[in-house]
Design a binder for these strands. Structure first.
Lengths: 239, 239
DNA sequence: GAAACTACCATACGATGTAAGGTATTGTCT
DNA sequence: AGACAATACCTTACATCGTATGGTAGTTTC
C-alpha cells in the first residue's frame, strides 16, 4: 500500500489546507503561538505537528527533541526584547530594557520560567550591551554585577507575579471580582489588614497592579545611581 | 483470588518495610522530600505512592488530585518562612522575611514557580502581618502596595535566578568551571564585556552570586524608606 | 449480625515524549 | 538513463503520566 501521499499535494488536511513547507523556524514560531494561546502545557509534539499539518515524529527531522524546541522558543521571545545602543546613558538603557522585557513577558507568560533555565544568545547579547553602557559610565565591575542582578531579578519576579494574577490584561476584572468579594468577607475576620487593603486599594477601579512596576523600577534605578555615586565618592577620598 | 493482603501486615514491601500508616500530612511531607531531591518532575503519583508503600490510586483516598498535593506542598514550604511579630519595626520585618523566604526557597527550588500560582493561608498570614507592620509605621495604603510589590517581586526573582545557576550551593564550582572556561574563549570575541566580567568578577574565587542578595535587598529597603519619608514630607507641607 | 466506614488495590484509558525503522520525492553523479 | 544518496515525511510501539471506575478486606457502629 502506498503512503497516503494525497495529503502532501492535494492536501485536504485537518489543520492546514495545502500545507506550507515546514521549516525549523516556522515550527518554532507556531510553537510560540500555541504556548501563547494555551499556556506551555498546551504545547505537545502531537499538537504542534497537527498545527503544522504533519505527524508528531516528523518534527524530529527538524529538531533533536522537545527541549530544543523550548530553547528555540525562548530565543525567539528574548529576541523581541529591545537592546539599547552603546551610546545610551546607563539609566535609560536599563529602564528601556526593563520595560521592553516586561512587555514581552506579558505577551509570552510561559517564557518567564523557561528563560532562567536556559542561556540564549540574545540574553548574552543584551548583557554584553548593558555592561558596556554601565562601564562607559564609570561603574566598577562589582557594581555592574550588583546592578544587573537587582534589575534582572526584579523584572523577572514582577513578571512572574503579574502573570499569575487572576485578572485578564484587558482590565476586565468583573468576572473575578465576585469571587474576590466572597473572599473579602472571609478575610475580614482572620486577616483584617489584608481585607482593608483589598477594599481601599486593590479593588478600587483605578488600581492596576501593572502600575506598581513604575514605582519598583524607579526605586531600583535611583538606588543604583546612589550606590554608584557613593562608590565614586569613596574612590575620590581614597586618592 | 484474594487480594494479596500479606503486604499490609507482614509487609516485605519494596519501599517501606512494615509500612507506617499513610496520612495526608505524611504523604505531603514525603512529596516535598521527593521534589527536593529530584526536582518537581521527579514527583509522580506512582513514585510518591511507592515511597509510601502503597499503590498510586490509594493516594486518591487522601487527596482529590495531584494539584491538591502541590497545594499542600506549597503550604508546607511557605509555613517554613518566618513571620515577624507585630511590634517589629517595618524595615527589620521586611528584611527578616526576605532572608527567610530566600533560605527556604533555596532548600525547595521547585516551590518558586508553584508559589505564585497559588494562594496559601501562610502567604495571606504573612501579608497580613507585614501590612500591619507597615501601617503601624505610618505607611499609606498605596505605599504599602508599592513596598510589598517590590520586595516580593525581587525576592522571588532572585530565588529564580539563583536556583537556575549551574553552581551547586556547597560552593564547589570546579566541576562547571571547565565548561565555563571553554565558553569564556568563545565569548571573548563576540561578547567582550561579558568575557571581561566573567574573568574579573564572576570567576574570582571570592565571588558568590548569593551575596548579591545583600546589595539588592538593602537598596530596595532604603528606597522604600526614602519614598515613605518623601510621602510623609509632602503630607506635612500640604497641611 | 448487618450495615457503614476506612484504607487500600486492580484494571483501564487517553495523553505524553521519543526510539526504531520504514517510504516517497528530489537531486547529484556517472 | 541508471544508481544512489539526501530530504522530508510516516507508522508502529513503548514506557510513563494523571486519573475514572469499580472493586475488597478489615474495623466500627448499631
Amino acid at each position: 500500500m502506498p503512503h497516503r501521499s494525497e495529503n502532501v499535494v492535494t492536501g485536504v488536511n485537518s489543520a492546514a489546507v495545502s500545507r506550507k513547507p515546514v521549516t525549523r523556524e516556522r515550527a518554532l514560531q507556531v510553537a510560540v503561538g500555541l504556548a501563547d494561546e494555551g499556556g506551555i502545557e498546551a504545547l505537545s509534539m502531537r499538537k504542534l505537528a497537527g498545527e503544522l499539518g504533519i505527524e508528531a515524529m516528523s518534527l524530529y527531522y527538524h529538531v533533536k527533541n522537545k527541549n530544543e524546541i523550548l530553547d528555540g522558543m525562548v530565543e525567539i521571545v528574548v529576541s523581541e526584547m529591545a537592546v539599547a545602543s552603546a551610546d545610551t546613558d546607563w539609566k535609560s538603557a536599563l529602564r528601556e530594557r526593563a520595560y521592553s522585557e516586561r512587555d514581552v513577558l506579558i505577551r509570552h507568560p510561559w517564557a518567564i520560567s523557561e528563560m532562567d533555565a536556559r542561556t540564549t544568545q540574545a540574553t548574552l547579547r543584551y548583557h554584553d550591551a548593558i555592561i558596556g553602557n554601565l562601564r562607559a559610565a564609570g561603574f566598577s565591575m562589582p557594581m555592574v554585577g550588583h546592578a544587573l542582578s537587582v534589575v534582572d531579578s526584579y523584572v523577572h519576579g514582577f513578571a512572574l507575579q503579574e502573570a499569575s494574577l487572576p485578572l485578564d490584561p484587558t482590565g476586565d476584572i468583573s468576572a473575578v471580582t465576585e469571587e474576590i468579594m466572597a473572599q473579602q468577607e472571609m478575610m475580614a475576620g482572620t486577616f483584617p489588614h489584608l481585607a482593608e487593603m483589598g477594599s481601599t486599594l486593590i479593588l478600587q477601579p483605578e488600581y492596576a497592579y501593572g502600575n506598581e512596576f513604575d514605582f519598583g523600577i524607579g526605586l531600583i534605578l535611583d538606588g543604583i545611581e546612589l550606590a554608584h555615586a557613593a562608590e565614586v565618592a569613596t574612590a575620590q577620598t581614597d586618592r
